[in-house]
Design a binder for these strands. Structure first.
Lengths: 157, 157
DNA sequence: GTATAAATGAAAAACGTTTTCATTTATACT
DNA sequence: AGTATAAATGAAAACGTTTTTCATTTATAC
């Protein structure tokens, strides 16, 4: 068990959540993944790596991790299917490629000033924010250029 | 028909969309509302105000308006149910009360600098962003204070 | 080892949204 | 005005994702 997993396991125990094999399996998959995964994708990976676990349990475990503030979601992915997950640590946001779905994390959003202004203007007490950029990653842009060039060379009908 | 509706009707026509009574009914409800509405809420309002229209048509019309860039969504509302809609005009964002669901619009997000930095660092071409604040509106905060005071005065068991 | 509350999984339900397809209709063109 | 055509509609069914239910199992504390 990696150190991140151990840390999270401790948090779970402290908060009264039991450490079941299923939860540890989900945790392992989520922590191990470089990408942001959907519940369905986590389901698949867990089954391959650890054996049979119900999809319901995946959802329940994800809700638990969300309760604990240990996972995060991607919001603007295509038609806001609930896309999501990974990275327990620091405050960060996402940059999503609308074409291939690639997600890049970034930190340093610097919204405090704006948050202060809004709080003052509206009387809201602000607890959190969603910030997400969408665009086209270098890869997909290159592909697009290649296709255009091909079109240029194609025989006209 | 209000001037906003006329303007949108013109855009629809220009883009080859037909002006059906159903579409005009949806448009009317959306433009008239001060609040952000769900498809279901729009469905109800349309039926009360204009008579029978299929829910499917509501969805299709909303998709059309989205295509035209004339409506916008609220993302972080509770459990990212697709919450949404309204306001054809300028670039803006939302401040959402997690308690009562109230949505306040604001402008001036000033993310250009951050956008430039990310573009440079990642090679992404950024087309859009989601920014949304969540918190508690003045109303709900006052209510909470009142409840606390009541608790204080309650007879201990 | 035992008691207990919590967690699991299968099945069904719930939910919001989309597809299908036969019918109707807004628009463009006589 | 009358007609042709592609587009829009609505009912029903399908869809994918998530939640509920409930009987069974299990991690934890004693």
């Amino acid at each position: 068990m990696g150190s991140v997993e151990k840390k999270i396991a401790t948090i779970m125990r402290e908060r009264g959540y039991k450490l079941t094999p299923q939860r540890l399996a989900v945790l392992n998959v989520v922590v191990d993944s470089e990408d942001h995964l959907t519940p369905a994708a986590i389901y698949d990976k867990v089954r391959h790596k650890h054996g049979a676990v119900g999809l319901v349990t995946i959802y329940r475990t994800l809700n638990m991790l969300d309760d604990l503030g240990l996972i995060c979601q991607v919001h603007g992915h295509g038609d806001n299917r609930s896309y999501l997950i990974r990275r327990p640590l620091e405050h960060h946001h996402h940059l999503v490629c609308s074409e291939c779905g690639k997600v890049v994390d970034f930190t340093g959003c610097n919204l405090c000033e704006l948050e202060r202004r809004l709080s003052e203007e509206t009387g809201f007490e602000i607890d959190s924010h969603i910030l997400e950029f969408a665009g086209h990653c270098r890869n997909c842009r290159n592909k697009a250029v290649k296709q255009d060039v091909q079109m240029l060379h194609a025989v006209p009908e």
